[in-house]
Design a protein around this nucleic acid. Structure first.
Length: 434
RNA sequence: GGAGGGGUGCUGGAGCGGUUGAUCAGGCCAGUCUCGAAAACUGGUAGACCUCUUAAAGGGUCUCGAGAGUUCGAAUCUCUCCCCCUCCGCCA
């Protein structure tokens, strides 16, 4: 969420925010307000809201004065009928004005929640993922003297992936891991957590998978991505789409100390996404499941260093791929492809020889103060002043996709898969065979 | 699920319906003292928003778990909801 005062005082600011994203009307698809909503209406309602607020406040001022005088008169046993009469008329007016103001407040807040974060100057302009510039490519793609298979073929043949069983249990876009598959998944989770905790000084967190709507709003999943999250209707609870939600909300309404920043957390969690609107896309394998495992990294930092921290965070995610020797590339998301709450995002993509394409495996973003403002997360700076923190997060990494990348990159001609060296102690073997 | 207790500022803890945004203590910050520190003493210590000013200061509104109500006036009374704690039952 943006600073409301800034939005009001500077139409130029909001126009700049939108222009950077190439968005002309952030409310285009907004259906919960009566009638079309655009910038013009936004500013008009803002003015109405403000003048109404001033009226309400001055009426309340008088009301409070009357109450105080009333008390004094009562104490002195003097006549209060004149005041009683005045306040009675005043209240009729006040109630009327307040009744007009409340819905206006609500609609303006909802409108403000739909304005995306301001992109950093370094974010390249572009329309779609086709315009994302390559930052670097690391590792070399293996040469196969056979046609490499897709991970679902390898996995099913080895008996470590069972999509038929998953369909029986739950439906499409789920997976069942068995034997060395289950163990590999667990190995990857442990390995990544260990690297981040031991080598990158993260604090490990294990948090609930069910959260209240307020937590989802804090990180910006609501109201914008309502369609994406699973909701438990009876309880007003939601399944987290990422551990970013729980970990970032850990410090909601907190006041942090500057000396403790950056605070670095890493959390494993299962993640749940409805994947509405992606029917028929990536229906096979582990790439796009309703439930998947992910190790997530979160930073709470200062405005001065947040973009430098984004480089560090990205590098920390990359470290996993370098250690495993999986070829990958880093791309910088262009304006059209950067997420709603993010000011700048790097994506990590791994090479999938079976599919002959790159696949996103991590997304590292700097949210500036966009999330912190909604969550009211501040820190005391050197001058003792309270200031909003900056938040960052990145996958470190998506486990299912990494699982798939390992099967595809380290598959052998005989259908077995060699286990990368760092995973040997976790797997207890160097090869997955039938 | 049953019975009971409780939610107040950074923390603890007060608060007959009337200058109580809130006594007091602790913490924290600053100052005095000191070579320095401790102790002692003095002062300061909520946030959001509106308004005013070049700025500082000032004025105003709202906030005592959340929401609604009673009243001229609510932290204080009423209702609903949420959360926490204790005991019993059930349970991984």
């Amino acid at each position: 969420m943006h600073d409301l005062k800034k939005l009001r005082e500077s139409p130029e600011y909001i126009k700049d925010v939108l222009a950077r994203r190439g968005v002309s009307n952030p409310w285009k698809d907004w259906n919960d307000c009566d009638g079309p909503f655009d910038l013009e209406r936004f500013f008009r309602l803002q003015n109405e809201e403000l003048s109404l607020l001033r009226e309400v406040e001055s009426l309340r001022t008088r009301k409070n004065q009357i109450a105080a005088e009333f008390g004094k008169l009562k104490m002195a046993k003097e006549d209060t009928t004149a005041l009683a009469e005045e306040v009675e008329n005043l209240k009729v007016n006040l109630v009327d004005k307040e009744a007009k103001l409340a819905p206006l407040n609500a609609i303006m807040e909802a409108a403000a929640l739909r304005i995306p974060n301001r992109l950093d100057d370094s974010v390249p302009f572009g329309k779609s993922e086709a315009d994302n510039p390559l930052v670097r490519e690391v590792g070399t793609k293996s040469l196969f003297d056979f046609t490499p298979k897709a991970h679902w073929e390898i996995g099913e043949r080895l008996g470590i992936l069972d999509f038929a069983a998953a369909a029986k249990l739950s439906g499409s876009r789920f997976s069942v891991l068995k034997s060395d598959g289950a163990r590999l998944e667990r190995a990857l989770i442990s390995f990544m957590l260990d690297v981040h905790v031991r080598e990158h000084q993260f604090v490990e967190v294990l948090a609930p998978y069910l959260v209240n709507p307020k937590s989802l709003q804090g990180t910006g999943q609501l109201p914008k991505f309502r369609e994406e999250v699973f909701k438990l209707a009876q309880d007003d609870l939601y399944l987290i789409p990422t551990a970013e939600v729980t970990v970032t909300n850990l410090h909601r309404d907190d006041l942090l100390e500057e000396k403790d920043l950056p605070l670095k957390y890493v959390s494993y969690s299962a993640c749940f996404r409805r994947e509405a609107g992606s029917y028929g896309k990536d229906t096979k394998g582990l790439i796009r499941n309703h439930q998947f495992n992910k190790v997530e990294m979160v930073y709470f930092t200062t405005p001065e260093r947040s973009f430098a921290d984004l480089e560090t965070l990205t590098n920390e995610a990359e470290a996993i791929l370098r250690k495993l020797n999986v070829p990958y590339r880093v791309i910088s998301l262009c304006s059209g492809d950067t997420g709603f709450s993010s000011a700048k995002t790097y994506d990590l993509e791994v090479w999938m020889p079976g599919e002959n394409r790159w696949r996103e495996i991590s997304s590292c973003s700097c949210f500036t103060d966009f999330q912190a403002r909604r969550m009211n997360i501040k820190y005391k700076n050197a001058q003792g002043k309270k200031e909003l923190v900056h938040t960052l997060n990145g996958s470190g990494l998506a486990v299912g996709r990494l699982f798939a990348a390992i099967l595809e990159n380290f598959q052998l001609k005989d259908g077995s898969v060699s286990v990368p060296q760092p995973l040997l102690t976790y797997m207890g073997k160097d090869k997955i065979t039938i």
